[in-house]
C-alpha cells in the first residue's frame, strides 16, 4: 500500500513484526512502520474475526490495536518504535 520517500533516515531501529525482522527509521510510530513494511492488517475483530487496519492514525478510531512487547490493545499509531520491539497482529481480544 505504502512506500517510504527516499530520505535516508538518520537512525534506524530493528523491530520484529509478526516474527519478521525489519529496519525502520527511529521516531516512526508502530502503525507507520507496520504499514510501510507491507502489512495489510493489524488486528482481527472481536465480534466477527474480520481483519482490520489503521484507519485514522490520529488516535480516535482505535482500529490499530496491536500486541506490542506482549501487551495487547496498544494503539499502534500512538507508540513509537524501539530497538528490539516485538510487534504482533492482535487476534480478537488478544491474550490477557
Amino acid at each position: 500500500m505504502f512506500k517510504r520517500l527516499d530520505e535516508n533516515p538518520a537512525a534506524t531501529v530493528t523491530v520484529t513484526i509478526d516474527g519478521v525482522q525489519f529496519n525502520v527509521p527511529a521516531g516512526e510510530t508502530v502503525a507507520a512502520a507496520v504499514l510501510a513494511s507491507g502489512f495489510g492488517h493489524t488486528r482481527t475483530t472481536v465480534v466477527s474475526g474480520a481483519p482490520r487496519a489503521p484507519f485514522c492514525l490520529m488516535g480516535v478510531c482505535y482500529e490499530c490495536l496491536m500486541v506490542i512487547d506482549g501487551k495487547p490493545n496498544q494503539r499502534a499509531c500512538r507508540e513509537l518504535v524501539n530497538d528490539g520491539m516485538k510487534i504482533e497482529c492482535q487476534h480478537a481480544t488478544g491474550r490477557l
Partner: peptide, 14 residues
Amino acid sequence: GAGQILFKSHGIVP
C-alpha cells in the same frame, strides 16, 4: 488525514 499524517510525520506515501 491518515495518509497526510504518514506523509508529514514519516515521509510515507502511497
